[in-house]
Design a protein around this nucleic acid. Structure first.
Lengths: 387, 387
DNA sequence: CTGAAAGCGCTTACAG
DNA sequence: CTGAAAGCGCTTACAG
């Protein structure tokens, strides 16, 4: 039937609209919308069935831009990270994305590259894109992009790191308790002098970790280098050259610890015999170093879930009744002879479902459930994964 | 001046619209749009100045949902990856995001988790969100989400991995040449029998790598395990138990090679003395293993740039005049005594600017350049990075 | 339970 | 060079 409206639309690839669906179903656009959104008005069962049939037959797909304009809900949440290739941030982002997709939201991810203007530009673009919420791991410096988003009326929250001086909501693990546990564990191995590898400054989470180390050991002068594998490797090489390699050390981040292990290997310095190491974070990479790192694991999944809940309007970031503790995951770098049983499972953890924002009120999305003219393409052969 | 429209808007937090700007600038909404978009009609310089002033004074920010509805351009590009915590995919995604932000596009990232229904759902949601393009690393299996997007009229392209049988556009490195180079290099080290660690099946890039290995060595039976560190570690442990550890091996992926190195370390088997290893991919992690991995580096940045160019309507994915070769980056795992000079720099590479889609025709965005009532917050102290 | 109509905030022919 | 007006595709009071 060349010439009928549907065929023409298909050929010229003009999008099928709610009006087309209404016409085919013999009802109104309003009713189609009621069916699609499961509200706000009830629809008779037989009408609903006709609408759903028309949706399928015409291959209708909702235009989110139009829905967003009218309803104010874009279905988008923004995420700004310093560097998505950092395994720690990557893991955090993954948990966030999982929680958000569970709430029917898509994640718009931007890298700030530890750069304030880039971070600011990213937040601007996100707000322009009408995101329903913004999650930021601060790039450092005085910029306060979460405050900016909140001022614009968009829910926003920091995770892991908030700029110094900001009082915007922050979700973070218990860094002080993590360091105390790490120091205590190294003492159990008989160490009395325990060094700390910090970052260039003492702001943010690493600042808390440094302070906790000072409190636990009475020491005041940490080692310092940038938060990269390369910088830590370089620092270690210079310590080795000068004969100043300590016997025990807590590294502020996994990235630094991994660089340090690589350099120690290159210099033939045995870990943990000559130098015992514990690091913080607990990114997925930490279990596959040589030797496996002992780490204080940040509660990334709980942090992600709480962040999403807060964007959804629930509770406060730091609920004193429900802290987010970092637990010690024992590898071999500390001197223990057998790693804890779950130290290889971190990436798997990422794949478990999480409770998310709006989950309770998640609308059954008929466009997803019923497909848009094409069904979902069946289970993948799990044997058949790329990479 | 309580009661004037602007103040009311600020207090009640109703968004400032283009009409408000027009009123304040003493002109029309059309002209404001012309200024904001630098076209399609010319605007007198003094009018433009008044509009820009009004934009700044009112803290106007464009509503992308409205612009998208009218113009059909959402400013969004979708990216579907199997797992953003895999360093190889993370690096690829980072290059893509960099190229896209350079073209004024935001990246909507979704994890398929190697699962076809999830991949399909992600693409559905992206198309609903009116993305202007979709980039997919196939989750495996027969699902062809790029074909689906193209059928819906949205530009789309596979990167790295396309499902078997699909003839949708694909951008990938030269896997055959990479393996040939790896095998040749191990032969230079005197190895005659060179094993291959493949994935569970021979589809996609790994399939090409297996085929190239077969062609180069005459062998036919690769070792196989899932593409995870844990799986490779387990496989290695069982080989060691049975006394079947080869003398030289090419691993299909960095993740497998890293797991293998960790297991070799645990078993006290020396790399490269007892077993020489070269892996493919060249993710940022490969340089910080113990010992540093020798890898055939995939041209991730070039792949990302080409993908973005293709979404922008340029050329074909596989331009025979300009292939995307994978080069050999020498570490120590192959038996060489000094790594190549640039093997520690991969993450830094990620931060360089790239040429992007639409770059030539990128409109100067006054909302970004001039800020929306608040200036960008100044350079971050580079010393002051979190993590 | 259903439908006609307004309107979200833009962009873009079109007319001047 | 400028402006009035239509319209993108939805959602949502409102009236029936």
């Amino acid at each position: 039937m060349i010439g009928c409206p549907e065929t023409v639309k298909e050929i010229t690839r003009v999008a099928v609209t709610i009006a087309d669906v209404a016409r085919r179903a013999g009802t109104s656009a309003a009713v189609v919308s009621y069916v699609l959104n499961d509200g706000p008005r009830p629809v008779a069962e037989h009408t609903r069935a006709r609408v759903l049939a028309a949706v399928r037959e015409l291959g209708y797909r909702r235009n989110r831009a139009a829905a967003a304009l009218r309803s104010g809900r874009s279905g988008l949440v923004g995420l700004v990270l310093p560097d998505t290739t950092n395994p720690y941030f990557a893991a955090l982002g993954r948990y966030l994305e999982t929680a958000l997709i569970g709430a029917g939201k898509l994640t718009v991810t931007a890298n700030s590259d530890y750069d304030a203007p880039r971070q600011s530009l990213a937040v601007d673009m996100l707000l322009t894109a009408q995101v329903e919420g913004v999650v930021v791991v601060s790039a450092g410096g005085p910029a306060d992009p979460v405050a900016r988003a909140l001022a614009a009326g968009t829910p926003a929250v920091y995770v892991h790191h908030r700029p110094p001086g900001s009082d915007a909501p922050l979700i973070a693990g218990d860094n002080g308790a993590a360091i105390a546990a790490a120091v205590a564990h190294l003492r159990e191995h008989g160490h009395t002098e325990i060094a700390f590898l910090a970052g260039p400054t003492d702001h943010g989470p690493v600042g808390e970790r440094v302070a906790a180390w000072c409190a636990a050991t009475g020491a005041t002068e940490p080692l310092r280098c940038a938060y990269t594998r390369a910088a830590a490797a370089e620092l270690f090489a210079s310590l080795a050259r000068d004969g100043r390699v300590p016997r025990a050390l807590v590294a502020a981040t996994d990235e630094q610890a991994i660089g340090l292990l690589a350099a120690a290997y290159a210099d033939g310095i045995r870990i943990p015999d000559r130098l015992a190491v514990i690091s913080c974070d607990g990114s997925p990479d930490a279990s596959f170093t040589a030797p496996p790192l002992t780490v204080t694991r940040q509660p990334l999944r709980a942090m992600a879930e709480r962040a999403v809940a807060i964007l959804g309007g629930a509770g406060s970031p730091a609920d004193p009744a429900d802290p987010l503790p970092a637990d010690l995951a024992v590898g071999r770098s500390c001197g223990c002879s057998s790693p804890s049983p779950d130290d290889h499972g971190d990436r798997e953890q990422l794949q478990q479902p999480v409770a998310g924002m709006d989950r309770g009120e998640l609308r059954g999305n008929p466009l997803v459930e019923h497909g848009a003219g094409e069904q979902h393409e069946g289970e993948a052969d799990p044997q058949d994964e790329p990479e």
